[in-house]
């Protein structure tokens, strides 16, 4: 995209709290959180070719940890946030050691099994997680003395983090390391023959992806001031994965658009009917069957075709 387009998007995003009501401001903040989460998953699914069905682990564990440290140990936000991020990233490192024993569907099964174990533990370990009640009473931090209780203030905070996260993830993908990662996705054997340590490349990506998942978890718990085992559930991982695939895995814009669509569907549909899970199921099937590449590559293909036709007509 051209810098002008970026400028327009940034202006529109920065202007939303000035025009829109609190409902839309809060809603857009939630989309930002979902976008970081989906973008971090996309590093694995899209760029690494590693389909993970357990990404909710990182969002959930970071959220639980920071809430638990704050509520039960009384630590301040400036301490809970780095501890939660570091511990969750460490967990991603360990999970990576386990899950990356396999690739493809074996990897998918392992990530799913690991995250389901965490989900079950969040339900059962009542003395720590309060089980089905969830952890209540979390507050939002006040960076540099600015309270984030107001929707617009939180919105700008989330926007800043989101831009930083997306920029750093785009850097990661665009770097030489990112090229290596795509190489391991497409031609693992050849990359290995060229002297790259395929396993290590994947593991580093796994950890990096887990780190950004943890960041989205922090924003998530700050926004809701509450965390429930549902955030660790398969539904939560699946929503992110369908966001990535719907938008177009392996593209930078895809997960943002996809997760925004999932959030919009979830919000609007659940205000009319209670059947979000059923709808999510149908969306899954529909997208896999009719739009396997996702929206962004689909639109891109459409545009190049249209462009070629338009040019042919002019000449």
């Amino acid at each position: 995209m051209r810098p002008a387009a970026w400028g327009v998007i940034a202006t529109v995003l920065a202007g939303i709290p000035l025009i829109a009501g609190d409902y839309y401001v809060n809603f857009t903040s939630q989309i930002f959180i979902a976008a970081i989460f989906a973008a971090s998953l996309n590093l694995l699914v899209g760029y690494g070719g590693l389909p993970s069905l357990g990404h909710a682990s990182y969002l959930g564990v970071a959220a639980y940890l920071s809430a638990w440290l704050y509520l039960k140990l009384g630590l301040a936000h400036w301490m809970t946030a780095p501890i939660a991020l570091a511990a969750t990233t460490l967990m991603a490192g360990l999970f990576g050691l386990i899950a990356l024993r396999a690739t493809g569907l074996g990897f998918l099964m392992l990530t799913l099994a690991l995250s389901q174990v965490l989900w079950g533990t969040a339900y059962r370990w009542v003395s720590v997680t309060e089980g089905d009640n969830g952890l209540r009473g979390m507050t939002r931090p006040a960076p540099f003395g600015v309270s984030l209780e107001n929707p617009a203030a939180f919105y700008y905070f989330a926007l800043a983090i989101t831009l930083l996260a997306l920029w750093l993830m785009a850097k990661f993908v665009g770097s030489a390391f990112g090229a290596t990662l795509r190489g391991t996705r497409d031609e693992a054997r050849r990359m290995s023959a060229l002297g790259h340590d395929v396993w290590l490349v994947r593991w580093i990506t796994f950890v990096y992806s887990g780190f950004w998942g943890a960041v989205s978890g922090l924003l998530f718990v700050y926004y809701h001031k509450y965390i429930h085992p549902a955030s660790l559930s398969l539904t939560s991982s699946a929503e992110a994965l369908i966001g990535v695939i719907a938008g177009g895995s392996g593209t930078l814009a895809g997960p943002l658009i996809g997760s925004a669509i999932v959030m919009i569907l979830k919000n609007y549909v659940s205000s009319y009917i209670e059947r979000w899970n059923m709808l999510l199921g149908f969306v899954f099937i529909g997208i896999v069957i009719f739009m396997p590449d996702g929206l962004v590559p689909g639109i891109r293909r459409f545009r190049t075709r249209w462009w070629a036709r338009w040019k042919a007509r002019r000449s």
């Binding site: 699946a238 899970n277 199921g281 899954f284 099937i285 896999v288 396997p292």
Partner: peptide
């Protein structure tokens, strides 16, 4: 399309649950 098949089975699982 193994990944697609797995995702479809997940979608069907959500539908059955609901």
């Amino acid at each position: 399309n193994a990944l697609g098949q797995v995702l479809v089975t997940l979608g069907v699982a959500f539908i059955i649950a609901d």
